[in-house]
């Protein structure tokens, strides 16, 4: 393989917004262009964090860029997201974040107090998550060449002992755990933009999920097969990726999936599916059937884990897809999200 020319399958003429939205278009870009040229030797499916070995020590490493409008929203801000997002990517790869380096891209003319507020938010989030900020870089671009500020964080983490997760290890009968109510972040951002003129008492769920991850690793370490934080594209997109990577079917019970009233109301009003809405403080775990109850128990006892539930299980069929079943015996496939969720009127 190493001697043959990399096979580039990405043939789209230009980059569109959807390529960054975390759905199928993003996947085509990563798998069709980045993977063959940059990590041709990589084994297995691409995940949010890489595990690499240096002098016999295995560490986890991840990077993420944060572009959000508005910069501040109920329950959080870009600074908190930038820390929690990276801590969470490491956590769901089975690692405790140890250090983060930060890159700021700032638009000339950005008021200092806005920047200062975000830097403070980052400091507080890092302290809360117990991670050190080890360095950084700043670039300033001309006014109009960026939307106020972008933050990139790169984190390294130490692997928790006794966890080995991979989609290939997922087996029929395994249970799907979800740490709490879904859609809070995505709906908060959608409403905070103000374009829809809709108000609701709702806050982003941004937080470090590491304490929750640690609690289930302690309770059911060997039984944990896979974890993911369902950010862009929501639970449906994360589970579709899993279904494709493991070749199994994911079957969810709709009535088990916790959704707050305000998220539900906004979704009904705007024609959206909560399963497609972004989260910033939740995670999904696939746990072997024999350890699932212990894992759930541990999650529920951990601070912030009271709403955790088992929402479904892995089955042989429908292979490669996510099926949602209802109490009254109806079922539907739920696909990945194509691009950003857009309000519908029809």
């Amino acid at each position: 393989m190493a001697t043959t020319a990399p096979k580039i399958k990405f043939r789209e003429p230009q980059i569109e917004m959807a390529h960054g939205a975390g759905g199928k278009a993003s996947r085509r870009l990563v798998e069709g262009l980045f993977a063959p040229l940059l990590f041709a030797g990589a084994q297995g499916p691409l995940s949010d964090a890489a595990h690499i070995q240096i002098n016999g020590t295995r560490i986890a490493m991840t990077t993420d860029s944060f572009v959000v409008s508005p910069l501040r929203f109920p329950g959080g801000s870009i600074g908190e997201l930038a820390i929690n997002g990276t801590v969470n990517d490491l956590a769901v790869s089975g690692a405790r974040a140890e250090a983060i380096v930060v890159t700021f891209v700032l638009e000339a003319g950005l008021p200092t107090d806005i920047l200062e507020a975000e830097v403070r938010a980052m400091g507080q989030a890092a302290e809360a998550a117990g991670v050190r900020i080890a360095g950084g870089d700043t670039k300033v671009v001309e006014h109009g060449k960026a939307d106020r500020m972008y933050i990139t964080t790169t984190g390294v983490g130490r692997l928790l002992p006794g966890v080995a997760i991979s989609p290939e290890s997922v087996q029929p009968g395994d249970k799907i755990l979800l740490s709490g109510a879904i859609g809070d972040h995505g709906i908060t951002i959608l409403l905070a933009r103000g374009e829809l003129d809709i108000e609701a008492e709702i806050r982003s769920d941004t937080r470090s999920v590491f304490p929750l991850v640690q609690s289930i690793v302690r309770a059911a370490g060997g039984g944990i097969r896979w974890m993911r934080d369902p950010t862009r594209g929501g639970v449906a997109t994360s589970l579709n990726e899993l279904a494709r990577d493991c070749g199994r079917g994911i079957v969810l019970s709709e009535e088990k999936i916790p959704v707050r009233d305000a998220v539900r109301g906004a979704c009904e009003l705007l024609g959206l599916d909560p399963l497609h809405i972004a989260n910033e403080g939740q995670f999904l775990a696939v746990v072997s059937a024999d350890q699932a109850d212990a894992a759930l128990e541990a999650l529920r006892r951990a601070p912030g884990g009271a709403e955790a539930v088992i929402i479904g299980e892995v089955r042989d069929e429908p292979a490669g897809s996510v099926l949602v079943t209802t109490l009254y015996g109806g079922s539907r496939l739920v696909d990945m999200l194509v691009g950003d969720p857009l309000p519908r009127i029809c």
């Binding site: 829809l196 003129d197 809709i198 108000e199 609701a200 008492e201 009233d261 305000a262 539900r264 109301g265 906004a266 009904e268 009003l269 024609g271 519908r344 009127i345 029809c346």
Partner: peptide, 29 residues
């Protein structure tokens, strides 16, 4: 062909009787 949902009128605009605030499980518009 048309998404429409039930909402409860919670307030009618004092200055414009054709404008009202509705509530859909805690979501207002």
């Amino acid at each position: 062909m048309c998404l429409a949902i039930p909402g409860k009128i919670i307030e009618i605009d004092a200055h414009n009787a054709q404008q009202a605030m509705v509530d859909v499980v805690g979501v207002r518009r």
